[in-house]
């Protein structure tokens, strides 16, 4: 702050004095039912079938994954469906020791952005890695999808349990 200012407003509430001030608690469980739309509906249905599907743009020739009905570069409708493989390479990865609420996980999670084979170079999605040790992990490693058994698949990104090294 400026050297002309000597007082800085704001009163910290320290952990030990937290109960000295009044506070009201409030919980809201906000529910949503998002329409998946033309592109993601088909993508989810194909996941249930054990396949990954993308969209292609005939103008820029890209195979877009996750699929969308528009090409954001050319700004036009994409032209058709295109099955890609369920294998890919690790673009980048990390090892998570914390959960979404910042609590510690018992077992670390391996997460990666996976470039999917068959889609345009560099296109992929986020997923988990399994059947791999910390030492083996590296950028550029080839991995393949480990699918849930057909009966357990519901049309979700979690129909792929994780990707494992191949």
């Amino acid at each position: 702050m400026s050297e002309r200012v000597k007082f800085f407003p704001g009163r910290e509430i320290r952990s030990r004095s937290i109960d000295e001030v009044l506070a009201s608690e409030y919980a809201a469980d906000l529910k949503y039912s998002w329409a998946s739309g033309a592109a993601m509906s088909r993508f989810l249905i194909e996941l249930k079938n054990g396949r990954i599907i993308a969209r292609k743009c005939n103008k820029c020739k890209r195979i877009l994954l996750p699929p969308r009905i528009f090409c954001e570069d050319c700004f036009r409708e994409t032209d058709g469906w295109f099955y890609v493989k369920d294998t890919g390479t690790v673009n980048t990865y990390s090892i998570s020791y914390v959960a979404a609420d910042a609590s510690r996980l018992k077992e670390p999670l391996f997460v990666a952005v996976i470039n999917i084979e068959g889609a345009t170079e560099g296109m992929g999605f986020l997923h988990l890695l399994g059947e791999v040790s910390e030492k083996e992990l590296k950028v550029g490693m080839r991995v393949g999808a480990v699918w849930k058994p057909e009966a357990e698949r519901i049309g979700s990104i979690l129909d792929i349990r994780y990707f494992k090294p191949i």
């Binding site: 959960a99 986020l126 990104i157």
Partner: peptide, 12 residues
């Protein structure tokens, strides 16, 4: 659709 089901965190 793609990321929340994985339990993603900002730190990832």
């Amino acid at each position: 659709h793609m990321e929340r089901p994985l339990g993603v965190t900002l730190l990832w």
